[in-house]
Amino acid sequence: MKLTQRIEEDLTLIRLGGQLLGGPDAEQLRSALLAAVEQSSPHILIDMSEVSWVNSTGLGILISSHLAARQKGGALKLIGVSKRIESILSVTRLNTVFEIFPSEEEGRRSFSAASAGKP
């Protein structure tokens, strides 16, 4: 699994590549996501366009990270979701948990809109 992240003022953009499976890779991702939530912004945008597939262990990592982000008032949102990953999110109904956007721009805009809506 490949992981790069860009920490910006309002959000952290994480680009993933390869397979999201479990094992040592999973721990790397879990640590990176939790560190991003704790140390920078709880608004996490994950670019999945280079991820070939995700298994149930990978889904578990995304969920626990989303919960951590939510506790800090943020969220974990997805962009670049392939048809295959979309089908696994749909079967597990996790497409109702994660907001999924067709483009990075729309994902970014959703965080801006959420921030603007706050008092």
Partner: peptide, 22 residues
């Protein structure tokens, strides 16, 4: 059913459910 609202956010227990659905 791990897709039930009360179980939706559990981080495990989906593998067999996914197989049965697919």
């Amino acid at each position: 059913d791990p897709s039930n609202p009360e179980d939706l956010m559990r981080s495990s227990g989906r593998g067999i459910y996914i197989m049965r659905r697919m």
